[in-house]
Amino acid sequence: MGLTTAVRRAVTGTTLAAALAVLGTGCGGQDGTGGQDGAPASTPGSATVSRTPGPGGGGTADRVVYFSAAPKGPLDGHQVLHDQAEVDRYAAQFAERDPQARTRIEDAGRTTDFTSEVLVGWTATTGCSAATSAALTVSGDRLGLQVSQPKPPPECVAAFRVSVVFQVARERIPAQPVFG
């Protein structure tokens, strides 16, 4: 084998390794928060909430009790959780991919006073970049999820999901909430 062939193979191997490294960054949280096998990893403190009024005189949630951004997670969905039994059923969706998430969500339910508070769980696809924060807005009968995230990379290997649970004063949640 000649010198040219050896150099070509070395360059090809290096290029392949670099390409795989770049592609691999799309499979976990961009800030290193992706869990094992792409499972959602809990990132306490990653979600933010503000107390500024939203459109129509509404406001944002009082407290974030769970936040995760990863390529894999439960299917998109949202739910107001009124008691521990509903929290346990909601948390069970996380069990297979992230048992710690299940535990954290169930624990949040145990520390919630359901006579004056509810939990709102929301999972949504965020596209090709991981969410860095989330906020729940309440305006009239409408609940909305606002997600902050960096600009996605030019290539998209896997779509990310955000999973977040908010603790909200019961009086702020409408009897028949409209999600969206």
Rank of each mutant, 00 (worst) to 15 (best):
A41P: 13
S42M: 12
T43C: 15
A47N: 11
T48I: 07
T48H: 13
T48M: 08
V49P: 06
R51H: 15
R51W: 11
R51F: 14
T52R: 13
P53A: 14
P55E: 15
P55A: 15
P55D: 15
G57Q: 13
G57S: 11
G58T: 10
G59I: 07
G59F: 04
A61N: 10
D62H: 09
D62E: 11
R63H: 14
V64P: 04
V64N: 08
V65E: 06
V65S: 07
Y66F: 15
S68M: 07
A70E: 05
P71K: 13
P71G: 08
K72C: 04
K72E: 13
P74L: 02
L75M: 02
L75Q: 10
D76T: 14
Q79A: 15
Q79D: 10
V80Q: 08
L81Q: 05
L81S: 03
L81F: 02
L81P: 02
Q84C: 01
Q84M: 09
A85L: 09
A85D: 15
A85K: 12
A85I: 09
E86V: 02
V87C: 02
V87M: 07
V87G: 02
V87W: 03
V87Y: 03
D88I: 12
D88Q: 14
R89P: 01
A92T: 10
A92S: 14
Q93Y: 00
F94D: 12
A95K: 12
A95W: 03
R97Y: 01
R97K: 11
Q100L: 13
Q100W: 01
A101L: 00
A101K: 00
A101I: 01
R104M: 09
R104K: 08
I105F: 00
I105M: 06
E106P: 00
D107K: 11
A108G: 06
A108W: 08
G109E: 09
G109Y: 06
R110G: 13
R110T: 13
T111S: 14
D113P: 08
D113H: 04
F114R: 04
F114Q: 03
V118S: 09
V118P: 02
V118L: 03
V118H: 12
G121A: 09
G121S: 06
G121I: 03
W122Y: 10
W122H: 11
W122V: 07
W122F: 05
T123I: 13
A124G: 02
A124I: 00
A124L: 04
T125G: 14
T125Q: 12
T125E: 14
G127C: 04
S129C: 10
S129H: 09
A131H: 06
T132G: 05
S133V: 00
A134R: 14
A134N: 08
A135E: 15
L136N: 10
L136W: 03
T137G: 13
V138G: 12
V138W: 00
S139Y: 01
S139W: 01
S139E: 14
S139R: 11
S139D: 14
S139H: 05
S139G: 15
G140R: 08
D141F: 03
D141I: 02
D141V: 05
R142C: 02
R142D: 11
L143N: 10
G144N: 14
L145W: 11
S148C: 00
Q149N: 04
Q149V: 00
P150A: 10
K151M: 08
P152F: 03
